[in-house]
Structure formats: C-alpha cells, structure tokens
Amino acid sequence: MSRPELQAPPEIWYGDIEAKKYTANTRNQQIQADMTYRALELLNLPPDEPAFLLDIGCGSGLSGEILDAEGYIWTGVDVAPSMLEVALEREVEGDLFLQDIGQGFGFRPGSFDGAISISVLQWLLNAETSHPTSSPPHRLTRFFTTLHSALKNPSRAVFQFYPTSDDQIQLITSIAQKAGFGGGIVVDYPNSKKARKVFLCLYVGQQKSQQVPQGLDGDEEQDAKVRFERRRQSEKVRSKSKRKAVKGRDWILKKKELYRKRGKEQVPRDSKYTGRKRKATF
C-alpha cells in the first residue's frame, strides 16, 4: 500500500469520510494512544508542575483526549478541517487551530512547556506547488524555527513520524539543528517490522542530560500507558510532590453530567471507580 502522504496533501486526504473512519477505527486509536504515551514519556516533563502543551497535527483529538485525561492543558493545530470537526464533536478540552505548520507559528517566545506530534512530520516532506515557500526545506525551516521560539527554555518537543529513508531523517534533523534544537532520533523496537517506531526528540536549551534516550527493545511490546504512568508515579514519590495529576472525581462527574444534558450518547456509567487514580500494574 502506498503511503497517504504521497497521494494527496493532508487536508485533502483527511476529508470528512476519511477523518471519521480514521478516528472510529479502534486499532488506530490504540496505536495513536501508545505513541502518545511514549511521546509523553520522552517529553520527560517535571512530574510536579502542571504543563501547557502544543499538539502539532492534533487531528481529531485522539492524542488530545489522553492529554486531557492526564491533566495537561493544551492547544492543538491541524491543517485538515474535517479532522478538527471530529475533534469538536468529541469535545476535547484543548483550543484548536486550523493551521499549516509548514507556514510557521505566530506563538510568542516561551509559550509552551513542551510539544508532541504523532504521525505528522512526514507530511512536510512533499512539495505541493512550485512556489519557493512550498519546498520541503523551506517549510521545515519555517516550522522548526518558529516552534523553537514558541517553546520555553528548557523544554522538549517529541515527534513520532514515518520516514521513508535515512536521507529524510538527515534532512529533518539537520534543519532542526540549524533552528537551534539539540537532541536526535530514538528508534523503538528497531528489529521488529510491526512494532518499530521512530521518534525525533528535540531539546530546547540545557537538559539534565543532552543524551538522547535509549529506544525500547525486547521481544514484547510494552504497554506505553502503563510505562508512562508508572514512571510518573515513581518520580512523584521521589519528589514528594502533592500535585493532583489526574482530574478530580467531582470534575469528571460534572463533565459527564454535562455531556448527558447535551444528549451525548455512550457516556460511561458512574461507578465507584470513576475518577479513581489508576494504579500502575506490574
């Protein structure tokens, strides 16, 4: 099967039907969730501070729902109106913008505490017109330069993406470096055809360690959500923080009531587990 990014620009590819299909597909949801949790893990945010994040190519809000559930405040940008419409229907809590990231951002310096991006960067590698501003290097430069400025110092931006060649990786990382980013590429499960995932981990400013994290390896794919929450829990214990990361039970009940009033279907029934902090399983 040929890659979607080679067939049409994203705002065309993800038309109304494709946007709904993509979002409703439970396999897509699971993969997207796994990659979002892994991206959050690589983002390595301080466990005891609330964070304001940018979701680059937020699509229909599949990652956004996870950011909501983990207690982050966020803003999402996407170039496909149909995907944003689905995000509105799903009532994610982040602010949404219709934006072509290859045209750059207008966010003020230091706006965000971090950025994540799932399955988006490869879309920047195709020229759509012959205009000079639509060449991939020009668009990547504009994107990384304005993103670097929009992130606070220090912070990180983590991108899961699907490169087709080492040349593409080389092009992307060299332009990111020129824009001022440190960091590099993390490959999870490099030897598995099915589980292999490529992440670009970019650093703004001085990190505790400038080393790029190790990729995951092993025979079995680990549950990214469990890994992320277990790690955050243990860091919190270490920093003796009292931060309430997960949204409060009262808040969730109130939100569900609101959805019911609006006639939303399939609101999960309240149970004694509602809003209970999930225990990390071992």
Binding site: V77, V79, P81, L84, E85, L88, L96, F97, L98, Q99, D100, Q103, G104, G106, T129, H131, T133, S134, R142
Partner: peptide
C-alpha cells in the same frame, strides 16, 4: 468559525 481560528496564509503572506 465554530470556535476554530483559521490561521492559513495565502502564498504571498508566507515568510
């Protein structure tokens, strides 16, 4: 529109 700002630029407006 519907709460979503359109930040898209025309070709001549792109830096």
């Amino acid at each position: 529109s519907s709460g979503i700002p359109n930040m898209l630029l025309a070709e001549h407006e792109i830096a």
